[in-house]
Every structure is written in C-alpha cells, then in structure tokens.
C-alpha cells in the first residue's frame, strides 16, 4: 500500500509539473500578452496549451483517487511540492537561475507546506483516547 501512495504522489507531482512547464512554453510562444482574440488564438494555436490541459485533467483524477485512500496531509503536501520539480526543470529547460532569494523563498514555502500538511494530518486522524 505504501508503494501505491508513493507512486500516486509522484504521478500527481508529474502531472502538475507537466502543466506548469506546458503553461510556460504556451505563454512564451503566444507573446506579446494582450487581452485580445489574437492572443487567445496564439495560445490555442500551438500544442503546449493542450499539454497543460492533459496535466490538469491527469492531476485532478490522480488527486481524487489518492484522496480516496491516502492520508490527506501527505496528499496535500505532495499536491503543492511540484514547486521543487518545476524549479529544477526550469533551470535545465529555460536556462533560469536559482538565485539566492528564490532558493531561500522556496525553502520557506516548502517548510510552510510541510507544516500545513502536518496540520491536515492531525485534524483528520482520530485523537487517541485520553
């Protein structure tokens, strides 16, 4: 069962990561940004936007089936920890830099997400009888 959770969490992160990477490619190819039909046509006229949709749909169904079985705390954390994989991939794919503020910010955010995941776990596990 543990292996099932781990696989589920990784799958969830994978779908979320796919979405974010696809969003970035789709947006970059549709530049310049404008509140116009022309921009919408540029967004939907290249394949990346559909990668983002696939990622969204995949993440949704993975999340729903995980929630049926997995504890909510780790599931919550896993559903937001794609920031790590997305940051690492953006260095490789988009030549971005892991600046000091970004790394510090990421550490604080991840610590916060872990706290929130722990809080969810506590709330959803029955308290041991006093």
């Amino acid at each position: 069962m543990r292996r099932f959770y781990l696989f589920g969490f990784l799958l969830l992160m994978g779908f979320d990561t796919l979405s974010q990477i696809s969003f970035k490619y789709a947006g970059t190819q549709a530049l310049p940004v404008a509140a116009s039909v022309a921009w919408l046509l540029r967004v939907f006229g290249q394949p990346w936007v559909y990668g983002a949709i696939v990622g969204y749909v995949g993440a949704f169904f993975t999340w729903m089936s995980l929630l049926k079985h997995a504890p909510i705390g780790p599931a919550f954390a896993a559903s937001h920890l794609e920031v790590v994989s997305v940051m690492l991939l953006s260095v490789w794919l988009f030549d971005e830099h892991l600046t000091v503020p970004r790394v510090l910010g990421a550490i604080a955010i991840i610590a916060g997400i872990v706290c929130l995941g722990l809080a969810e776990s506590r709330e959803h596990t029955p308290e041991p009888a006093a």
Binding site: A26, L31, V33, V83, V86, M87, S90, F94, E96, R102
Partner: peptide, 14 residues
Amino acid sequence: IAFLSLIPLSEGVL
C-alpha cells in the same frame, strides 16, 4: 499563462 509568459517559471511557481 499570461503571467508565466512574463516572468521566469521558477519565480512564477513560487
């Protein structure tokens, strides 16, 4: 999509 096209992805997700 518009937001991410204007800033680095690593900054955007954070």
